[in-house]
Nucleic acid binder design. Structure first.
Length: 279
DNA sequence: CACTTGACCTGTCCGC
DNA sequence: TGCGGACAGGTCAAGT
């Protein structure tokens, strides 16, 4: 059994966003604490400035959650690999991996993160767009304005790097990580190692269609669960049962029955069907 | 500027 | 059984 880390990507973060938005609006922050210095920081404000503010909505940009606080502050949450943002109504979810606790007038948000890569940033709402976590984020693939032309425009900034590396670059398209990059490339019948400047218009059109289809389908399945992923209620996702290539090394391709292989592209473990994705 | 590599972290797995 | 090292991957800083 191969071990994988966690990879909350757009579908997982969107699942969490929906759950939190449905229950957090109106709750007030009482206290923010962290037990690992880098996990929670304030930029352009102080942590105590958030005390007493009410959550007015939960948004998402790429893989970043954005909790709005009374219109003038915001809390950015990036789960990175192993982060879990859990709604703790009864005070029972804190444990050895808890890095941050956001106490509210009702319940708390507990941020558990085994590998300590996750980040929570409190900042003025006016600085959200220019924060390093969001400043160079590419187009949102599930907005109606996303199109093959927009994807083409962003891919054109790359030449020799692989199409997989470009998909993982958040400035190309927001929210794609290693699992969905592989799934999108399979659905597009494009080889992950293909150079960006070798993509034909038809390839880019297929990629744009697959990006929307794969991410939408994954949201409907509640996201993927590798190892540590949990939604805000602690539940796992189901998408991996539907995955075409990811974590299916040696198993038959669902389209042509050839054996799925795992190779290294752009420094990442990469799964593909050598027959369907020969070019 | 385009691109690659290393650092950040911890837990798990594999080979000796 | 114990232990060292490779590996997992999102992002940014530093290097080529």
């Amino acid at each position: 059994m191969v071990h994988y880390g966690t990879m909350p990507e757009l579908p997982e973060v969107e699942s969490i966003r929906r759950q939190l938005d449905a229950v957090l609006v109106g709750r007030r922050l009482v206290d923010l604490t962290s037990s690992w210095p880098k996990t929670l920081v304030a930029r352009g404000t102080t942590l105590t400035a958030a005390h007493g503010l009410a959550i007015d909505g939960v948004d998402r940009r790429g893989k970043v959650l954005i909790l709005g606080l009374d219109g003038h502050l915001a809390l950015l949450v990036h789960l990175r690999m192993t982060g879990q943002l859990l709604l703790d109504e009864t005070g029972e979810l804190e444990g050895p991996k808890t890095r941050c606790v956001i106490t509210m007038d009702r319940g708390a948000l507990v941020f558990n993160d085994q590998r300590k890569f996750g980040r929570l940033v409190l900042l003025p709402a006016s600085l959200v767009a220019e924060d390093p976590l969001l400043a160079r984020m590419g187009p949102e693939p599930l907005e109606t304005s996303f199109s093959a032309q927009i994807l083409s425009d962003h891919l054109r900034r790359h030449r020799s790097i692989s199409v997989k590396a470009a998909l993982l670059d958040q400035s190309t398209v927001a929210g794609i990580g290693n699992i969905y990059a592989d799934e999108i490339l399979f659905a597009s019948e494009v080889n992950p190692a293909r150079r960006c400047d070798q993509l034909k218009r038809r390839d880019i059109e297929r990629l744009a269609t697959a990006i929307v289809a794969v991410l939408s389908r994954a949201i409907n399945a509640g996201g993927s669960t590798m190892r540590d992923y949990r939604d805000a209620n602690g539940a796992q996702g189901n998408y991996l049962e539907e995955a075409a290539v990811f974590a299916r090394t040696g198993q038959p391709c669902r389209r042509c029955s050839a054996s799925i292989i795992k190779v290294r592209v752009a420094g990442r473990g990469t799964h593909l069907c050598p027959s369907c994705q020969s070019r």
